[in-house]
Design a protein around this nucleic acid. Structure first.
Lengths: 139, 139
DNA sequence: GTAACTGCAAAATATTTGCATCCTT
DNA sequence: AAGGATGCAAATATTTTGCAGTTAC
C-alpha cells in the first residue's frame, strides 16, 4: 500500500511528504470520493487547510485525482485510474451519489452512454452523475 | 413577456417584486444558464447580493429554476420547463458547457440516456453534463 | 394592516496569496 | 545546497443570519 503511494508520487515527480502520503492514503482506503472538508476531518486537522487546498490542486493537475461535479457547492475528488496522465483525464465512468449516506461512488464498470448532440456541438468530456440510494441504503 | 413572468410568480404564490421580475427576465432573455455571479453583473449590481441568494433559492424550491452541477464550484441555474412543480423537478435533459465561451446550454431535445447501474443501486435522478465546443465556438 | 420581501450589518465560512521556514532530494 | 513544500498571517471572496424598514396585496 505504502509502496503504491510512493510510486504514484514518484511517477509524477512530486516529493514525498507527510501530507501527500496521508491524503493519498485516505483516498485509497475510501471507497468513494472525498470533498475538501471530509479530508480536513479525516486527517484529524493535522494539516493546514492551505496545504490541503494545494495538495488537491496538485493531484488534479497531475492526473492523480479527478473532480466530480455536484450541485451543492462542494467539489468531490476521487482517484483516477492509471490511464490518466498530466493534463489528460480519462475518467469516463459514471458517478453515483447516495441521497442518504452521501457516499460518492465511482462506478468504474459502467461506461458513460453515448449522447447524441445537436448539430454544431462537439463533445470533449461527458459527466454522468446519478443520485439515488446506494446498495447499503436500500434496505 | 412581462405577462409570462407575472404568471410564473403568481402561479407559485410569490409576490411580484422588482428583483424577482428582473431576475426571471434575465433567465428568459438568456439562452443558457447563469451563476450567482453572472446575475450580479447582469443586473448591474442593482440588487443586494443577499436578495439574489434568496431569490435563487426560492425559485429552486418552487421549481422555477433548476441547478446544474459543475466541477468548478459555481452552481449555475436555468429555467425549468412547465412540468416542474414545487419539490419535484423533471429536468432530465442534457446540459452542455462550452469550454470556450463558458455558455451553458440546456439541451431540452436530448433526453438522458439509460444508465445501467450495478445491483443494489437505485437511481433517483441522472445528471448528464457535457463539456466541449458549442456551435458558436466550433469555427 | 399584515405578511412577505428587501437591504444593511455582521457573522461564519471558504479560498487565495505572500512569505519565512522547513523538508526532500 | 537548492528547490520545493508547508504553515502562518492576512487578504479576498462567498454564503448565511438577524433585524429593521419597506413593499405587495
Amino acid at each position: 500500500m505504502q509502496a503504491r503511494i510512493m510510486d504514484i508520487l514518484k511517477k509524477n515527480q512530486l516529493s514525498v511528504t507527510e501530507s501527500r502520503k496521508k491524503i493519498l492514503e485516505l483516498f485509497q482506503d475510501n471507497p468513494g470520493a472525498l470533498a475538501h472538508h471530509d479530508i480536513e476531518l479525516k486527517t484529524g486537522e493535522k494539516f493546514d487547510r492551505v496545504t490541503i487546498y494545494r495538495t488537491l490542486q496538485t493531484f488534479v493537475e497531475k492526473g492523480i485525482l479527478h473532480t466530480i461535479p455536484s450541485a451543492d457547492n462542494s467539489i468531490r475528488y476521487a482517484l483516477c485510474k492509471d490511464e490518466c496522465t498530466e493534463g489528460h483525464h480519462h475518467d469516463n465512468h459514471v458517478h453515483f451519489i447516495c441521497d442518504k449516506c452521501e457516499t460518492t461512488y465511482c462506478l468504474e464498470a459502467i461506461t458513460v452512454p453515448e449522447v447524441k448532440l445537436p448539430k454544431g456541438f462537439v463533445p470533449n468530456q461527458i459527466e454522468v452523475v446519478v443520485n439515488g440510494k446506494c446498495r447499503n441504503c436500500v434496505k
